[in-house]
């Protein structure tokens, strides 16, 4: 599923960017680099269809009947502010997303990932008691629990050390291959633990 942007410009930004015509080719990987406040997050939120304060058009090459279907089956996102449920446990935070596709990722697979990211022992802890870095990993794992055409990652490595970032990159790589999905990553610098096809600086 390609994503087309036409005369796109976020409205809420003073020094924001504008794209006259741009296509996110499926299933390529895009690294979007910009300093804070340029509109990286806004761009992802606009593509994810949870913000409408932009000029121009965003279109998908597939017809998608509803936003719910878009979010359940086509786009998966890791929010910059993570948006986990602090009063639920790590495990419940994953399950609340997994209910839509309970057979996509087996529980043993999920446990393996948790173990790989050093979260297995924490799975019955409330998320509010986890560190930001740990929460970031939970949010990443949550985004793996659905079918997807695109994985949108909003500064996914901002709160973790390099070693952990590498581990996360390995998992992302595996998922993108398995699901044959494209990826957009936003970052402050042009270096990323995940290899990308294109790098754009806004």
């Amino acid at each position: 599923m390609n994503i087309f942007l036409e005369n796109f410009q976020p409205l809420s930004l003073n020094n924001g960017f504008a794209l006259s015509s741009f296509t996110f080719q499926f299933p390529k990987r895009y690294l979007i680099v910009a300093p804070s406040g340029r509109g990286k997050t806004t761009l992802l939120h606009c593509i994810y269809q949870i913000r409408k304060d932009y000029k121009g058009k965003i279109a998908f090459s597939k017809t998608i009947p509803s936003l719910t279907i878009l979010w359940r089956n086509h786009l998966s996102i890791v929010f910059q502010d993570l948006r986990l449920f602090p009063h639920l446990t790590l495990w419940e935070n994953l399950q609340i997303k997994r209910v839509f596709h309970p057979h996509l990722v087996k529980e043993s697979q999920l446990l393996e990932w948790l173990d790989f990211l050093s979260l297995a022992d924490l799975r019955f802890q409330r998320v509010e008691h986890l560190s930001l870095g740990q929460q970031q990993r939970v949010a990443l794992l949550r985004s793996f629990l659905q079918p997807m055409d695109w994985l949108l990652l909003d500064e996914p490595f901002s709160h973790v050390d390099e070693a952990t970032a590498q581990k996360m990159a390995i998992l992302i790589e595996a998922i993108l291959k398995e699901r044959q999905a494209g990826c957009m990553i936003t970052a402050l610098q042009s270096s990323s633990p995940l290899s990308c096809d294109f790098c754009y600086v806004l």
């Binding site: 009063h87 639920l88 609340i96 839509f100």
Partner: peptide
């Protein structure tokens, strides 16, 4: 679809 986790979340602070 299981409502178990959704209900658990919504039940908090109700």
């Amino acid at each position: 679809m299981s409502y178990k986790y959704l209900f658990r979340l919504q039940h908090q602070n109700f």
